[in-house]
């Protein structure tokens, strides 16, 4: 296996390492090498957002990143959004309460886009929310309840501050 390369990553706080094929996409490494199946694949062309993760604090479509290039990086996946106490993050809670998803396949992209937006803009309006999630496709919800979920989450988080 001389044509593999060694990578080390932190995923949701846990140290991970593996010898991988240098051509492996980050989404494949996350899913298949490290077993975090909550990150999904919808297109592999960077258009749908189902593969979204957080890499070193930035949200990324992991199908557009080579796993090798993420070596040493800190990754958060959808499995790492909820607090450790077993509850849900307020953004997740709002998505549940407002029926912000149906099949759930698009959730990695939608949740990370929502988290990212609210962090930089705690009181987003509808247009800002729509812009923030526009890199992600959702085929089930028509985005209506995703927008509402993010509004609700932002309001609840602001009120809790």
């Amino acid at each position: 296996m001389s044509d593999t390369i060694h990578i080390e990553l932190t995923i949701n706080g846990a140290a991970k390492s593996a010898d991988i094929d240098p051509r492996l996409l980050l989404v494949e490494a996350i899913r298949d090498t490290f077993g975090y199946k909550g990150t999904h694949i919808g297109c592999l062309t960077g258009d749908c957002g189902a593969c979204t993760i957080e890499l070193n604090g930035e949200i990324e479509k992991s199908c557009l990143v080579l796993a090798a290039s993420a070596d040493g990086g800190e990754i958060r996946t959808i499995e790492g959004i909820a607090p450790d106490d077993g509850g849900l993050h307020p953004v997740q809670q709002a998505f549940w309460d407002e029926y912000g998803f149906q099949c759930g396949y698009c959730l990695p992209g939608m949740l990370f886009a929502a988290l990212d937006l609210i962090e930089s803009n705690p009181t987003p309006d509808e247009a800002q929310i729509r812009h923030a999630i526009s890199g992600n496709y959702c085929r089930c919800t028509g985005y209506n309840n995703i927008v509402t979920s993010i509004q609700t989450a932002a309001q609840r988080m602001a009120a809790a501050k």
Binding site: K37, I78, E79, Q92, W96, Q102, L111
Partner: peptide
């Protein structure tokens, strides 16, 4: 009533298994 989706928390925390998983 507008009851929430069953097992919504599983979907939201990435635990739901689709065929590719």
């Amino acid at each position: 009533q507008r009851s929430r989706k069953l097992k919504g928390d599983q979907f939201l925390t990435g635990k739901t298994e689709y065929v590719n998983d």
